[in-house]
Amino acid sequence: MNNKTAFLFDLNGTVIDDMHYHAEAWHEILTKDLGADLTWDEVKKEMYGKNREVLERIFGKGHFSDDKIERLSLDKEKYYQKAYKPHLKLIAGLQDFLAKADTHGIKMAIASAAITGNIDFVVDNVDVRHYFDAIVSADDVSTSKPDPETFLKAAEKLQTAPKDCLVFEDAPKGVEAAQNAGMRCVVITTAHPAEDFKQYDNVVGFIADYTDPYITNYFSEQE
């Protein structure tokens, strides 16, 4: 860490452990409402990136009108938020880590493939918006992870060089996006085991949550 270091956090599975609820929402929409012949595991495998990208991967481009995609997206997010809100909380140890990073003057951003409404739903309900100097959502980029645009835009907003950014991610596509952006990455193993990331050379550590000694000792080791 140096005085230019910035932290970039993915949201789902990284700030909150909610991927099961997204999977439930997508499974409901895709299999019950739209009749897709997909197993639970197949739904989980396909539900990355923007909602439009998910639908187009499964049904093909042009299958739905823009208005239909917008309605399906809204239905999915309503289902997700209703199901997850009673369980909404930060991943263990993150509150203390954010507070400590803030006292050290570390610039921080949310850099997520989530839509703005879902990011607002999280950061406002757990009261952490004040820790973040920038937020980049799916609505701010043209191409989702593993394209580096999300992380590069966050770095630009923080006025920080990519090499000085430390990304916190839970998904291989996100780690690949960080690698494509020239950024180091800490992996939170909420959704994937460490072996799913062996092809990436930008991973500097693995943690189960933010109570891991790698995180709790982070600042003392830098001093």
Rank of each mutant, 00 (worst) to 15 (best):
N2M: 05
N2E: 03
N3L: 09
N3Y: 07
K4I: 02
T5C: 11
F7R: 04
L8F: 07
F9N: 00
G13K: 02
T14S: 12
I16M: 04
M19E: 15
H22A: 06
H27K: 11
I29V: 14
L30F: 10
T31D: 01
D33F: 08
L34Y: 05
L34I: 12
W40S: 08
W40I: 01
V43C: 08
V43R: 09
E46V: 07
E46N: 13
K50F: 08
V54Y: 01
R57C: 11
G60W: 00
G62N: 02
G62D: 07
D66N: 08
R71H: 11
R71F: 06
L72C: 03
E77R: 06
K78L: 10
Y80M: 07
K82N: 07
A83F: 06
H87I: 03
H87F: 13
G93Q: 07
G93S: 07
D96S: 12
F97E: 00
L98G: 05
K100G: 00
I106Y: 13
K107W: 00
A114P: 03
V122T: 14
D124S: 15
R129V: 09
V136Y: 15
A138G: 13
D139K: 03
S142I: 11
K145S: 08
D147E: 12
E149G: 10
F151T: 01
K153C: 02
A155Q: 06
K157T: 00
Q159W: 06
T160H: 04
A161E: 15
K163D: 13
F168Y: 12
D170T: 05
K173C: 01
G174T: 09
V175R: 05
A178L: 07
Q179C: 10
N180A: 15
T189S: 07
A191N: 15
A194D: 02
N202K: 14
N202R: 14
N202I: 00
D212M: 10
P213S: 08
S220E: 15
E221V: 03
